[in-house]
Design a protein around this nucleic acid. Sequence first.
DNA 1: ACAAGTGGTCAATAATATTTACCACCTATC
DNA 2: GATAGGTGGTAAATATTATTGACCACTTGT
Lengths: 259, 259
Amino acid sequence: MPTTDLFEPIASESVVDLVTGQIESMIIQGVLREGMRLPSERELSERFDVSRPKVRDALKRLEGQGLVNVRHGDGTFVAKLTGEAMSPALIDLYARHGQAFYDYLEYRREQEAFAARAAALRATRSDKDAIEALIGELDQAHRDHDDDASARADLKFHGAVVNASHNAMLIHMMTSIYDLTRRGLFYNRKYLRAVDGTGDMLLDQHHRIAEAVLAGDPDRAEAAAREHLTFVETSFREGTARERREDFAQKRRIASSLP
Amino acid sequence: MPTTDLFEPIASESVVDLVTGQIESMIIQGVLREGMRLPSERELSERFDVSRPKVRDALKRLEGQGLVNVRHGDGTFVAKLTGEAMSPALIDLYARHGQAFYDYLEYRREQEAFAARAAALRATRSDKDAIEALIGELDQAHRDHDDDASARADLKFHGAVVNASHNAMLIHMMTSIYDLTRRGLFYNRKYLRAVDGTGDMLLDQHHRIAEAVLAGDPDRAEAAAREHLTFVETSFREGTARERREDFAQKRRIASSLP
DNA sequence: ACAAGTGGTCAATAATATTTACCACCTATC
DNA sequence: GATAGGTGGTAAATATTATTGACCACTTGT
């Protein structure tokens, strides 16, 4: 392997790339919300300190992505982004922004802690039956070493816990979130594998959530749910950090074996 | 405050900026070590996929920073960067790269855990007297609310623990690190304040390291040292994450108060 | 002494961005 | 309904940055 392979090709970002990137981040962060009118092109040009044609190019790109609507003679508005399920534009946006993924996990942890606590207090007999059945599915998928079945049962299990909370708003919101997760837009299972190779820890965590809900213990249920999502988040951080270290370590090894 | 203040001026990076940035990172990460010969300008140009004059401009900038030596007709070499104390070029480089700071903390945590364990086993009477005296200085600075005195006593205390390890190499290396830290190049005290407002927790941690060393308990000494540096690292992460959230929250507040 | 590598310089050209001017649409006001 | 002042839309001329290509000077190895 030649020495030059230690270096990565340079990837310059154009002015249009940078402007669209910033506006996208502001949409993700909720600073720009749907229906809001953006400042005029002339104002943005001045504030960004780039030329107006370049601001136009960026806005055209954002319009192409479905994130804004540009109206001749009127202005530029943030598009309608959410509905029963997130708009494809917003889905794509979240998927392309790494920090958004961690926001998603943090959001999920808060919602599922809320759900687990409420479920422990409110679960009906049929809710509990559904939760037990899904734990059975998780066990079976684990024994079969069936990752796809595990992933599907995982989301169904979390959905059952949310359903048992009997909070209509929470159920509604989380159904959308689980739909998106089901489409594989938000996580990469390989990171989980890096930390919990066989899935034993994940399964154990699911069991503890279920047991606490079935036992009607809100404190344990909330704690178990938080621990589970914290574990998932930590796994991802470790997974990405490890990849970065491995990349550097590999380069160091190559570099140190040079004459 | 006008709406446009929600947006940040665009800061494009030139090809030269990107090339120098990558080479700097590789020096920091130890992929490029002092004395190593870089690939030729022509090879770098090909690998980076930028023009040769631009590679030259970047190498000229790095030479100006003291990071590389360019020899006409011979090649480009990574400069001598370390000595008894790090070269000014490397100091400046570490200070300008955020991730390097966390590497510094991680490095320090490992070295000080090592030092605390060895000190607990090997501290002599005079070592222990020095450690006790410095804990006294820390206490006095805390009572006086004297941040500068606290910072100075902090480094003297850690230096005394390292000295008590009686590992010459470790002492030598950490003396350089403490010299650099003393120059204020590696941390920003305001982040510590954000998490531990009055410094009580920090003082308590110092006490626990000292007590374990004086008691000759290597396990407790190592654990206390790790906990201390983990606390410092967490404080910094929280501090920077909070600043970022505050910035976004402020922008959201401004945005939401718009008509 | 020579060849083949290296770095050093620079003019011509290409790509990207900016400046400037003008046109068309929309909305509010009179 | 007319008008003014805002908005977005288009494009040519110019400026800036980067690339291409060629050639020169230095260093090292044979």
